[in-house]
Design a protein around this nucleic acid. Sequence first.
DNA 1: ATGATTATTATAATTAGTATAAAATAGAGA
DNA 2: TCTCTATTTTATACTAATTATAATAATCAT
Lengths: 137, 137
Amino acid sequence: MANLKYSRQRASIKEYLSSTMEHPTADTVYLHVKEEFPNISLGTVYRNLNLLADMGEAVKISTPDGGDRFDGRTEPHYHVVCRSCGKIFDLELDEEHIKSINELANRHFGGTIESHTTLFYGTCEECAGKKSEKGLK
Amino acid sequence: MANLKYSRQRASIKEYLSSTMEHPTADTVYLHVKEEFPNISLGTVYRNLNLLADMGEAVKISTPDGGDRFDGRTEPHYHVVCRSCGKIFDLELDEEHIKSINELANRHFGGTIESHTTLFYGTCEECAGKKSEKGLK
DNA sequence: ATGATTATTATAATTAGTATAAAATAGAGA
DNA sequence: TCTCTATTTTATACTAATTATAATAATCAT
């Protein structure tokens, strides 16, 4: 259906997403890719980010405040947003656990459930000013 | 700190939220409350919805497409968004389960986690065209 | 009832994201 | 390699969602 053509802009966007842990907004991606492509248009960034998300090569994260954010890591995982600094962190849980939640939800829902996103709220290590060595990734 | 004064508009907004299962957007709330207060301003609706959410008397739901939605049910529960019709449904899971996920996440995160929101994606009963009698609520 | 404070209204402004048309590029085939 | 067509990009305009502001109105303690 979709006849997708290569573009250096999209390749650069994807590469940047893969390289950063920052879960950037479209605008942050734009500013970054602009260094390589000074004439790139913000619309191009939005279109490609959504394209990548649709193709499963990136993840779109909706947060209650501020715009959507994007993540180049596509393996199922969760996110924590720090109420203090606003940063978003990856959180690894057992893949089994993530799958089993969909099954659990299916048993409680009349339709069918395919996937889910979870956003945790809390305080990040830095903002909490503590130095634990738990499974932060 | 905040010296909150009663307003009939806010009371009406809250009452509407409590009465509906529709998870309305701010604009839908606006159109509804407008029947009782024809001169109510959309800004008033936004401000009060956010106020109620901040006070824990309503829940703000961020979805990837379209604006935020609001829910008058404040007991911890999840939501399912139907990929076909876009409607949002409540999903009840054990309260124990919901709490235990926060604890599990805490064990895997360097900071502290207080709460989480989960949004499931799937197809609702009506759109799936099936008639199961599972735990839909 | 009075007065200080907070809320509302009406409106303007901002922000995030989408749409469009012309120019550029990728990639298939001659 | 050259040419042709489809797709992409750019530049810009536009829309939708949300927030800010200033004047007016309502609440509530005294």
